[in-house]
């Protein structure tokens, strides 16, 4: 049982991190915190890719004299590019948050939704029920 635990602990840690990230994304209303949670979800996937490629006793996949066992290079390549793409998309998300803050003066999800639905609650002539918010 202990051997099974040690053998699969990396998967379970990855699942815990992914679910914690997902929890932050769906339970927390603050948009910046949601993005941090999304980042944690994303990094847990890096772990899911890289951990199975490791061989205990092996070395980093840089071929040199005197080494015979190397860890698997393919997940490293995939994750390397994914990290940089991840930060680019994080920056895109932050740019959206900044624009939302400027339009709604809030980055709390509840507050934004309330403001979005406010024109429908108090009917006004002319504008219709578009739910459009004047910044």
């Amino acid at each position: 049982m202990l051997a099974h635990f040690v053998d699969h602990f990396d998967y379970w840690a990855m699942i815990f991190l992914a679910m914690a990230g997902l929890f932050i994304v769906i339970a927390r209303g603050n948009l910046i915190k949601k993005l941090v949670g999304l980042g944690i979800f994303q990094t847990s996937v890096y772990l899911l890719y890289v951990a199975p490629g490791k061989i205990v006793g092996g070395t980093a996949p840089i071929v040199a004299e005197g080494f015979r066992v190397y860890s698997n290079p393919l997940p490293h390549v995939l994750i390397l590019t994914a990290i940089v793409v991840g930060v680019a998309t994080l920056a895109l998300g932050l740019a959206l948050v900044v624009r939302i803050r400027e339009a709604y003066d809030s980055i709390e999800e509840d507050e934004i939704l309330r403001r979005d639905h406010a024109p429908e609650v108090t009917p006004s002539r002319g504008e219709g029920a578009g739910g459009k918010v004047v910044p």
Binding site: V87, A95, R101
Partner: peptide, 19 residues
């Protein structure tokens, strides 16, 4: 490309100024 994008993003965020 990576250096350009990272720098441009930083310039845009930093140059916007606080509310």
């Amino acid at each position: 490309t990576v250096c350009g994008v990272m720098l441009k993003v930083y310039y845009l965020f930093a140059g916007r100024g606080p509310e």
